[in-house]
Design a binder for these strands. Structure first.
Lengths: 345, 345
DNA sequence: TTTTAGCACTCAAACAATACAAGTGCTAAG
DNA sequence: CTTAGCACTTGTATTGTTTGAGTGCTAAAA
């Protein structure tokens, strides 16, 4: 259990260090703190905090910087989200103010806004209806040899893909295939569809197409794309700002990470009401060692819940970031509710 | 006009420097060259080459490196494309060997292959039928409130977009709009379509929809996407390898550049039979100062011509790269001809 | 018991001095 | 025209020095 004064010092160390990036020493603290004590006293307290593992030195005679545990304590007990700057609120409202014709535009735009506000990298995920089901499948002939496959789920996700077919395939055959899919698979959850697709569907399709494999590839492809949650990413390039000592390899693995849907889903975790902060190596992924991730859900009632997140250096101004994330999730939820209200009835 | 010996020296300087990255001095050259002359002689020749602006020193007593003009001379007169390594040919053939269901897959895969072979960044552009025309437009209702707009051009490009509509819009209205578009716009070139879209179409559509703006936005959006050439990019991350002194700003502008279709189209230029090399500041764009770009067209007869390109450091092994690009464009053309042959009749 | 002044000590960063290696241009002789 | 020889230039690496910020510890003051 920390004393009041220790808390005050820890808070000041984190604040100072996240602002300046320079290890903070006892004298600077003594000058800055509201209480009047000498630097020697501060030193004693800092030694105690170091003993507890909350702060550490970069070398034997340097000032202190927070350890991961120190950030953790700060985030859990000491920080208070900053109120949003008026200007930031203007940015949010004007960027979300326009007319949108699809959910995805709003969500994708949100990632951009968040990255602009923070100058970090932002992720957004649209509201998810869990266990979404296949609600429709179409094959639309587009020309002599092109066909578009469209798959719709009951959560409103649409995936499509065009492909070329041999002219020997007739419209009747295509229709038969569509009918088969719709009869057999509509209403099932996507994992169930995948299962059936590996089991009895191929044989049935073989009745209508000589070489069903090509078609099955396409359908499977569209299906897996639909089954994946898709994150939007904003401010990718901002990661470059924090590549300390220009370590190309870790940058590369970082970028590979954020472009792999599965991996990033893993890191972000599941929706959960709180705003949560993961710091440095609290995330198992090694590429994220020097980063922190703030995730939050937003709630659009019966339309489900989505997520937003920002990824920045461990040394980020948490109070400001928490303020931004907190405010943004509310604005986004409002916007989406407006949107649904307009299109739903 | 250079003497034989000067050419030999220039060639050796470029070879050596592109291999090692170290400025090359007279002694090293004397040892390496097939003729037997002393380093002093080489020095005299190098002084002459420097006088001509083909090579330069990094500081007053350093070895020489090629200037942009030196690379230019080398590329124009001295280089001979390396024959492809057997292993590289295997990579190409196996990567292009699979079954593809659309042109874009082949082209996109090509960018990946090229970037793997070279460990640089690669661009590919599919064969273009110039002046492509609008050949069809569809609106496909997907559910209660979702509609997909699909636009097809006679060059086989397909663009689509889903959007949400208010339920007050009826299927009849949509059909009327589709008929209008197809009657008035099909057969025109895309620029003509754009023009008409700004002129008389909005009024006509207003007969069927109360608020045509939303629809016009969507259509316009899909249209401009279709009108743009779309490049595929492979090996984006490889750019990180050449960010000398980790200059974050120039990296950022580089990445912004390659993600802007218009800009990159500008840099790559127009199709042209030769394999062409642009070196360093021969490209007007400042972000490319330390890069070279090798572009080539490939030709698929009546199906038009496309482009491939690789972007790497000015200091790249040109002979090997020219070999790869030359071989790859042939393999790609073959693959595409096969593809068209299969799907065309 | 807590706080504080004082002091010796540590370390990174900046700077200067030095030596070294690689390379150059120039001159004079072959 | 070529070459050996030599004085000269410059980047790099190494080493030592100084400076300043910061620390821990001790002993006295509160």
């Amino acid at each position: 259990m920390l004393s009041e004064r220790q808390m005050m010092i820890l808070r000041a160390v984190v604040r100072d260090f996240t602002n300046t990036g320079v290890p903070v020493g006892s004298k600077a603290l003594a000058k800055q703190l509201p209480i009047h004590v000498s630097s020697a006293t501060i030193r004693n307290e800092m030694a105690a905090l170091e003993e507890l593992g909350l702060i550490k030195k970069t070398h034997s005679s340097s000032g202190r910087i927070p350890s991961v545990e120190g950030y953790r304590y700060y985030v859990d007990h000491l920080v208070k989200p900053d109120p949003l700057r008026p200007n930031d609120m203007d940015v949010i409202q004007s960027s979300l103010g326009g007319d949108f014709h699809k959910i995805d535009e709003i969500i994708s735009q949100s990632a951009t806004i968040l990255s602009n506000l923070t100058s970090y990298t932002a992720f957004t995920l649209k509201p998810e209806l869990k266990d979404s089901r296949l609600s429709g499948f179409r094959l639309v002939p587009l020309g002599k040899r092109q066909v578009m496959a469209i798959l719709v789920t009951d959560s409103g996700d649409v995936e499509n893909q065009t492909f070329d077919v041999n002219e020997s395939v007739t419209g009747d055959q295509l229709e038969a295939v569509v009918r088969l899919i719709n009869d057999q698979l509509v209403g099932l959850t996507l994992p169930e569809v995948v299962k059936k697709l590996q089991a009895d569907i191929p044989m049935k399709i073989a009745n209508y197409l000589q070489s069903p494999q090509g078609f099955l590839d396409i359908f499977g492809d569209v299906l897996t794309r639909a089954a994946q949650e898709r994150f939007y990413v904003g401010g990718r390039l901002n990661l470059l700002n924090f590549s300390q000592d220009s370590d190309v390899d870790s940058l590369k693995s970082l970028y590979s990470l954020i472009d792999k849907t599965d991996d990033i889903a893993n890191v972000l975790g599941r929706p959960d009401d709180k705003i949560s902060v993961q710091i440095g190596n609290e995330m198992t992924n090694d590429a994220l060692r020097n980063f922190s991730l703030i995730t939050a859900t937003y709630d659009v009632n019966q339309h489900g819940r989505g997520m937003i997140a920002i990824l920045g250096p461990t040394r980020m101004p948490y109070s400001r970031m928490l303020g931004i994330v907190g405010a943004f999730r509310e604005e986004l939820a409002k916007k989406l509710l407006d949107y649904y209200r307009f299109y739903d009835e």
